[in-house]
Simulated assay, not measured.
Amino acid sequence: MPQLNPAVMWSCGPLNGTGGAEDQPLCQHLHLVLSVFSLLYLVAGVPVGLGYNALLVLVNLHDQSSMTMPDVYFVNMAVAGLVLSALAPVHLLGPTASGWALWGFGSEAHVTLLVLFNVSSLVTMYSTALLSLDCYIERALPRTYMSSVYNTRHVCGFVWGGALLTSFSSLLFYVCSHVAARIVECSKMRDAQAADAIMVFIGYVVPALAVFYALALISRIRKADTPLDQDAGRPDPSVHRLLVATVCTQFGLWTPHYLTLLGHTLLALRGKPVDRHHLGILLFAKDVARFLAFSSSSVVPLLYRYINRNFPSKLRRLIKKMHCGRQSCSPDQAGVQQVMA
Rank of each mutant, 00 (worst) to 15 (best):
T226Y: 13
N310I: 06
A7N: 12
R143K: 10
H277Q: 06
D196I: 06
E108T: 12
S313D: 10
I319L: 14
A54S: 11
F37W: 09
R220S: 14
A268C: 06
V119D: 00
H154M: 13
G203C: 06
F294C: 13
L261P: 02
G51Y: 13
F291S: 04
T144H: 04
V336G: 04
S148R: 04
G157Q: 12
M340D: 11
A129W: 00
G280K: 02
V111T: 08
T124P: 00
N60M: 09
G161F: 15
A140G: 03
S297E: 08
L42R: 06
N76D: 15
C186L: 07
R305N: 09
Q337D: 15
R222Y: 09
R182M: 07
G45S: 14
P89C: 10
A140M: 10
D287H: 10
F284D: 00
G325Q: 11
G104S: 10
R222W: 11
L266D: 02
K188M: 12
K188G: 15
M9S: 08
D225M: 13
P95H: 03
L302V: 14
D225C: 07
D225P: 15
N308V: 04
C324R: 05
A208V: 08
Y306P: 04
A334S: 08
Y204W: 07
H110S: 15
A88K: 03
G271I: 14
L4P: 00
R270M: 10
D229Q: 12
C156A: 13
S85F: 02
S148Q: 13
S313H: 09
I137P: 01
V123A: 03
